[in-house]
Amino acid sequence: MNRPGVYEVEMVKNTFRDLIYDPAFGGGVPGDRPVKAFIPGGVSAPWFGPDQLDLPLGQDEVGGQGSMLRSGSVVVLDDTTCLVRAAWRITKFFSRESCGQCTPCREGSGWIERAMYRLEHGGGRVEDLELLLDLCDNIAPGLTWPPQQTTICVLGPSIPSSVHAAIEMFKGEFLAHVDKQGCPFD
């Protein structure tokens, strides 16, 4: 962002495009690079693509599209960002954040994090995509929104949301990681 910061905006009236591009708010992406994806409400929320930029900033509107506004912290990923790396970093955060009480969150976050690390740093396999989705499904059955959970608390379904979204939206980028046995953005 040209102007990262905390902004007070009126709900529903503004859209994500306003928030990102309005000179009073985000002020656009540095170098005017295109938005590849953005996370509407904190890293536990599923991602949106550029086609959803005109969505109004409202709980119901975002919720209706299969994500959430919740904390309202919008993360914008431009086209120089490796989305595998972004998803891996978010999963790593959650695996450190897991309290370790219940099994799916404790073991699932660690496993997904390690598989993502492998994809990002070489050693990825094509079958890992299916594996990751299935592990996500074991934490949040059905991978629906709002999510179901096999865990005690809602930290559990937060773990797969970024990985699931990244694989759904950018499968080609994952396959490129597998082909190159490393990160194409490096």
Binding site: T103, P104, E107, G110, W111, D134, N138
Partner: peptide
């Protein structure tokens, strides 16, 4: 799934 998670480590 839970059993697989338990066996992972």
């Amino acid at each position: 799934g839970v059993l697989e998670f338990l066996l992972a480590n």
